[in-house]
Computed example of a mutant assay.
Amino acid sequence: MSHTAHIPSHRKPRRSASKVSLRAGVAGGVLSTIALAGAAAPANAAQPVTETIEMPTLTGNLATTAAATVQATKTVAADLQLQAAQDAAASSAAKDAKKAKDDAEQKAAEAKAKAEAAAKAKAAAAERASRSAERTTLSAAASTATSTFKASNATGSAAAIVNFALAQVGKAYVSGATGSSAYDCSGLVQAAYRQVGVDLPRVSQDQSATGTQVSLSNLQPGDILYWGSSGSAYHVAIYVGGGNFVGAQNPSTGVVERSLDWDQPTGAVRVL
């Protein structure tokens, strides 16, 4: 038996090839440093080296990994930038589409409103035309009725007074006027009676007290109608028959033919 058989072994485990290479590189670098230091130092300063500097050595695999990482980062950044541009373009297109839709809806609403307004205006015009035609028909009927009445009932001086009064319808009202293009109420009555040689007082107050007072239910063509009290009337007109009178009413209407129901007189006088 060997004299070392019972002595435990102090051998260290084997290192991997990469670690051995790394240490060899470091050791080489240290030895080179020591050699340079020894050559530079003076002969009498030769002392043992107590500090060492380890110089890390980068392997080729580490540099390749770093380059790959940088490239990957650039690729991700480019993808994110492209995605942001696409999102912005989509958002802009959506806004443009919404604006176009809103504009189209607004134009459609405006066109509909214009069409409805045009339809209303057309209907209103048709209604006005219908009312105008109806008034024309009624006016013609009234004129025919008046003409028939004059031919059958108004005779002599009364017919002359009535025909004159009707001929003045449509002329202007002017205060103080007595014809022939304008009248006030008493001026028209005075001018009508002058056609048959009767000279009436000039003003309505005096005309309302001339002749004989008659009931409104017993009127005859040519009678003088008055509004207010006898002797102090404020308005006069001529009864033309058929429930109508002719009078110079006011500056707005001029000389008109109206129904007694339109403005009921207070009384009447008969001069003829």
Rank of each mutant, 00 (worst) to 15 (best):
D206Y: 03
G254R: 07
A113D: 12
T73E: 15
G176L: 10
A111M: 13
G222A: 00
K99D: 06
S9Y: 14
A140K: 15
G222E: 08
L260S: 01
A41V: 06
A142R: 09
D103V: 09
A43R: 02
G156H: 09
Q71A: 14
L216N: 01
V196K: 00
G247K: 05
A167Y: 03
I34K: 05
A117N: 06
A141M: 12
T64W: 08
S147P: 10
G38D: 11
A40Q: 15
L225Y: 00
G228M: 13
F164H: 01
G170F: 10
A78L: 14
V30P: 00
Q190Y: 01
K12D: 06
T144C: 11
V30F: 04
A145I: 11
S259I: 13
G247R: 08
A84D: 10
D199T: 06
T75L: 12
A27Y: 07
Y239C: 04
L166P: 03
G247S: 15
S130E: 15
R23I: 08
S91G: 14
L216F: 00
G179W: 02
L188M: 04
E105T: 11
A78K: 11
K101T: 05
T50N: 06
D261K: 12
A17C: 09
A118T: 11
A121S: 03
D103N: 12
A117F: 10
T73D: 07
M1Y: 04
R14F: 04
V198W: 04
S32N: 13
H3L: 11
Q205K: 03
V162T: 13
G228V: 08
F149W: 10
S143K: 15
L219I: 08
N244G: 09
L188C: 00
R135T: 07
V269T: 02
V198Q: 03
R11K: 04
A78I: 07
N250Q: 11
T155N: 13
E105I: 12
A172S: 05
G267R: 08
G170W: 11
R131S: 12
Q71V: 10
L31V: 05
T178K: 00
A104P: 01
D96V: 14
K122H: 13
P251I: 14
V269W: 01
S252R: 15
L82K: 11
E134T: 14
V203L: 03
H10Q: 14
G156E: 09
V269L: 02
A140T: 15
K19N: 08
K122V: 09
E127A: 13
H10P: 00
A126E: 11
N250L: 14
I7F: 10
G29Y: 01
D261W: 08
G247A: 15
E257C: 09
S186A: 07
T4S: 15
L80E: 13
S152Y: 14
A108E: 08
K150H: 11
V246W: 02
M1Q: 04
A66Y: 09
T75K: 05
P13M: 15
A111T: 10
Q83Y: 07
D261L: 15
S147V: 15
V169D: 00
E110M: 07
S208A: 11
K112Y: 04
G176F: 05
A85L: 12
E51R: 12
Q190E: 05
S186Q: 03
I53L: 07
A142K: 03
E51L: 10
E54D: 08
